[in-house]
Design a protein around this nucleic acid. Structure first.
Length: 464
RNA sequence: UCCCUCUUAGCUCAGUUGGCAGAGCAUCUGACUGUUAAUCAGAUUGUCGCUGGUUCGAGCCCAGCAGAGGGAGCCA
């Protein structure tokens, strides 16, 4: 800023304990009420949900280019912070100077009224200025910090696993291709693209998970975690899926499945308690406007016991229920959304870990149990969202792992570096993956993943 | 990818049996006011998603296409 004098954040002014003179604030006009002698501006700068009421004498507004002042305009105000004589706020600002930085016209798409989320998605470049999205993205930021704090407090190493990868066999979904070859005349051998001539000398793509690399680090640093973007080229079109999302993946040496669940539970509870104490104003907004009862739900959750049930027990519970499910319940088949929802919403009415799934429906790296028909896998199911965490104890025995890879049609040679950790100094270890956006949805009550990502990427959509 | 629903003013949405295109908000003008998404009066605003069909006549019925939303699958 070319002017001297520092800028006060509106959050700070609204929390003031005494009057303050010669204050400077900058922000965007949320609402303007104009009278003959006096005008009132509700100003927001994103530092908090609330607005600062600016009181302006009419003469001040008449001087300059104030014609373009309206909802959405950006202004700089100088004046004094005083006690507000009227109801509605305890502090307000008596303006001595108002400067327009960026005006608006009648085409400004955000009005001082409620808009549909669908419409706001179409103006994703402006929606951060709307109350709901202000609250969502402040909370996203706070929650990211809380994730790092949790692991930092417990001595976990934060590792940046690669975004570009050449593993095509993680079984976690379709990959986006990364290439510098010209799609119209890519080099070919035997009628197939010759990836050896590509930039990385082999077929490369965007990561679908940092887990395999995370395991390598866990077998050197004991406790590690990753927290970064993940990409899935699946053509899935639901309110819970995005092509680009953020995932948190801890990996812990010397920890079995039960210990893995304990960490997941502690982590989940830590984050709930964190937002309850640090994001109160935004949570109250969600509680009021997005999901009535949210705060109560989260407070109960912070005390709640997380239930544990094996897959086989879950199948029994589903079979015993009088419910007519659309998909049949049978041991050996994966649980459908409706089954998961029934378990977490009706049977347990709270978070539940389902463990020990049949080996044929889970990934190759999950540890084979002694019964030789289930693996040490766990999913954490929560009401409303369904599966929010998926994890397992990893197979640390070289021969068993090789066997599992064969059975899943994966060439062990393509992952020889992964197998090396089992060859030399192998150890029992476990980890899980938590979808950051799903967590955010659960904590805000927002129902569409596209509304908790700043600029969401989904099939057919990568604008902004 | 499959199933269902939707698409009307800048936004949110009504539009009956096929018969003149509507409301609220926003915007503009004015009034009024220490106001609280202020209030009051007046004014402006339409390729009824697109293409074709049925009909004397289509926002409404039919077909195709496009876009959006919800559900399913896949998963986090």
């Amino acid at each position: 800023m070319h002017h001297s004098g520092s800028r006060s954040a509106i959050k700070e002014l609204l929390a003031a304990t005494a009057v303050r003179s010669n204050v400077r604030v900058c922000g965007w006009v949320r609402s303007l009420r104009r009278g003959k002698d006096v005008a009132f501006i509700a100003l927001n700068d994103g530092s908090c949900l609330g607005t600062l009421q600016i009181v302006v004498a009419a003469e001040l507004l008449q001087i300059s280019e104030m014609i373009t002042l309206g909802t959405g305009a950006c202004i700089e105000v100088r004046g004094d912070l005083v006690e507000s004589p009227a109801a509605g706020q305890s502090w307000e600002m008596q303006a001595s100077q108002v400067a327009l930085m960026g005006g608006v016209d009648g085409d400004y798409p955000l009005q001082k009224k409620r808009h549909s989320f669908e419409y706001l998605r179409s103006i994703a470049h402006l929606r951060p200025r709307a109350n709901t999205f202000g609250a969502v993205f402040r909370m996203r930021s706070a929650l990211s910090f809380a994730v790092h704090r949790f692991f930092h407090e417990r001595g976990f190493l934060y590792v940046h696993t690669p975004i570009v990868t050449t593993n095509d066999c993680e079984g976690a979904g379709e990959m986006f291709r990364v290439t510098t070859l010209d799609p119209l005349c890519a080099p070919r051998v035997d009628d197939r693209v010759d990836w050896s001539q590509d930039f990385f000398g082999e077929k490369a793509g965007l990561t679908v998970s940092g887990q395999l690399q995370g395991e390598l680090f866990a077998m050197a640093f004991s406790d590690i975690y990753t927290f970064g973007p993940t990409f899935r080229a699946e053509n899935s079109n639901t309110s819970r899926h995005a092509s680009e999302f953020w995932m948190i993946e801890p990996e812990m040496a010397f920890v079995d499945l039960a210990g893995n669940c304990r960490v997941a539970e502690e982590f989940f509870r830590y984050l709930v308690v964190y937002v309850l104490s640090r994001c109160r104003e935004d949570l109250e907004f969600f509680d009021q406007r997005i999901e009535p009862g949210l705060i109560d739900r989260l407070e109960k959750l912070s005390q709640a016991e997380f239930h544990r049930v094996t897959y086989s027990e879950a199948i029994d519970l589903l079979e015993k229920s009088e419910r007519a499910f659309e998909f049949p319940v049978a041991w050996g088949h994966d649980l459908q959304s409706e089954h998961e929802r029934y378990l977490t919403e009706e049977v347990f009415a709270g978070p539940v870990f389902v463990t020990d799934y049949p080996e044929q429906i889970k990934a190759f790296y999950m540890r084979m149990n002694d019964d030789h028909r289930t693996v040490a896998a766990m999913d954490l199911l929560v009401p409303r969202v369904g599966e929010i965490i998926g994890g397992s104890q990893r197979e640390e025995r070289l021969e068993v792992l090789e066997q599992r890879m064969q059975a899943h049609g994966i060439d062990p040679d393509s992952l020889n570096w992964y197998l090396d950790t089992r060859r030399w100094g192998s150890c029992p270890h476990s980890g899980f993956g938590l979808g950051f956006e799903r967590l955010l949805m659960y904590l805000t009550g927002m129902e569409n993943i596209r509304d908790v990502i700043p600029f969401p990427r989904t099939p057919g959509h990568a604008r902004f």
